[in-house]
Nucleic acid binder design. Structure first.
Lengths: 154, 154
DNA sequence: CTGCCTATCATGGGATATTATGGTATTCAA
DNA sequence: TTGAATACCATAATATCCCATGATAGGCAG
């Protein structure tokens, strides 16, 4: 499970250390690395272990093969995503176009979101986080845990 | 799993480098190369490892032998597909008729789509990808992973 | 509780291997 | 013999590996 936030440096060669606790999550025995793609929702990257993409794949396979949305998803996700393998010290080299897409400039912050994570430019994330907090505050009544002992927030 | 997008040059002899990470996927020990056929859905090529065609074959074998769709698929895929083997440096030579079919002119972009891939003329793909991206964004609510920790894209 | 030791982590630099691509030679068949 | 297809070689750019360093955190002993 990807948790917490960390910002690391993106060096001149495009190398970026993946936080150690993220690395512990992704091993599938076969491929030692992460998969990253540009979010189709904003100027940041999304990523996860290879298992995440396999989940998406099996999800897509339940859709009609000629469903236009399915084809669009295949193109938007598989075509855009890159397999980035760790070097000996747990770094990946982030392709230049992805770094540009997210506006990364020397630094990148990883945001753990459970099953997947996001990579933002620190500044962009800063302002984004503020509006997210605001929205969370405004919607806090919707955050009630289901089931027994609903220890809802506030 | 075929991932990401790469555009390589198609030289005067019809030689085309297959992206290295695509090559890593297709090995079946026996035949070292890819299988390519013209898509019956547009002016581009589809392809995959030999294993993909075997999957299609077993899928078709579950259909009625006289099912018109089965016959059509057999004609459209098996009859039209070519086995292209790698040379020493990982290129295939793309038959001229296939290059023409896809409107390839000096450059060709490989698009990884999980179990298979496509080969497009870069310009043609450009505009096509934009609409796919737009559609994916509009339908993103349908892409929700089931089960605990649903790491949906949003 | 405090200071030291050690393991792990993030990061930098240089050496090495791969990749994509162009060109040349060789084979094979017409 | 000639053309086309195939195999072979060369090279520049790039990605990968490998080692070294400083920082940090945790464990252990006094």
């Amino acid at each position: 499970m990807f948790l917490s936030t960390a910002t690391n440096t993106l060096d001149a060669k495009g190398r970026l250390s993946v936080p150690a606790d993220f690395r512990a999550v992704v091993g599938d025995g076969n491929f030692d690395g992460i998969v990253v793609w540009p979010s189709f929702d904003g100027a940041y990257l999304e990523g996860g272990g290879i298992a995440l993409l396999q989940d998406y794949q099996s999800l897509l396979e339940t859709m009609d093969p000629y469903d236009e949305a399915r084809i669009a998803f295949e193109r938007a996700i598989f075509a855009e995503s890159r397999r980035l393998s760790f070097d000996g010290t747990g770094r990946v080299t982030l392709p230049k176009d992805l770094a540009e897409y997210a506006g990364l400039n020397g630094r990148a912050t990883f945001i753990g979101l459970g099953r997947r994570f996001e990579i933002w430019s620190p500044e962009a994330y800063q302002s984004h986080a503020e509006t997210a907090r605001k929205m969370a505050r405004e919607n806090r009544h919707r955050l009630r845990l289901q089931g027994r002992n609903s220890g809802q927030v506030q």
